[in-house]
């Protein structure tokens, strides 16, 4: 663990990542072993493997990392985290990088932020989600062509009663919204 007194020597980007990730201080212990990059089911699709990303964070290559697709290719399977010999919370760092990229407006290259937004908008409104509806809505607005490809399977799902058209609404939506509003407000504070 980095003693707080040593944190001053880290790159600014590293400091920010640590500040935004619970347990993130461990990242300074990365051995560059590549267990994470070798394990990731989506490693082959990433611009930079997680390992390379950690080297770039240390080297303060902020834009190159935040504009990369790496974290957007992460599906939170936690395989890297389970295997990292230094017990670095890699998946949580991927979440932090997603948040930073959105916050700094650098996530342009990926559809994933839009998908995430569609999803949480629904939850904000209804308190529950309905994943297929969300997927459809997302595709409709963002990738109309792929809707056509879905065709058959989508229809069968509908026929089997597995495709809801509206989400259920919880009773105390107001309460949930109050909580969300407060949390948003608090997170803007720092």
């Amino acid at each position: 663990m980095v003693a707080e007194s040593h944190a001053a020597h880290l790159s600014q980007f590293m400091k920010d990542v640590i500040a935004d990730t619970p347990g993130g201080q461990k990242v300074v212990h990365c051995l560059q072993c590549g267990s994470c990059g070798g394990s990731c089911p989506n490693g082959s699709e990433m611009d930079f493997t997680p390992r390379a990303v950690f080297a770039m964070i240390a080297a303060d290559r902020r834009d190159a990392v935040l504009q990369a697709n790496t974290m957007w290719q992460c599906v939170s399977c936690y395989l890297c985290t389970a295997r990292c010999p230094q017990e670095i919370p890699i998946t949580e760092i991927m979440y932090a990088l997603k948040r930073m990229a959105i916050r700094e407006g650098k996530a342009g290259g990926s559809d994933a932020p839009a998908l995430a937004k569609t999803f949480t908008d629904f939850v904000d409104r209804y308190g529950r989600s309905f994943e297929f509806g969300i997927a459809t809505r997302y595709l409709l607005f963002n990738k109309p062509l792929s809707m056509l490809k879905m065709g058959g399977a989508g229809m069968s799902m509908f026929a089997k009663g597995r495709l809801a058209l509206t989400p259920t609404k919880i009773r105390q939506v107001k309460q949930l919204q109050a909580i969300i509003d407060k949390a948003r407000e608090l997170s803007n504070e720092d």
């Binding site: 560059q32 072993c33 590549g34 267990s35 994470c36 070798g38 394990s39 493997t49 390379a52």
Partner: peptide, 27 residues
């Protein structure tokens, strides 16, 4: 240069059939 992530017999390609596949990142 890379710590091995896994050793598996789950082949993905014909060339891997019947082999042990060592997966890692060449860092």
């Amino acid at each position: 240069r890379g710590k091995v992530s896994e050793v598996t017999d789950a082949a993905r390609m014909p060339t891997e059939q019947g082999k042990l596949i060592v997966q890692c990142e060449d860092t």
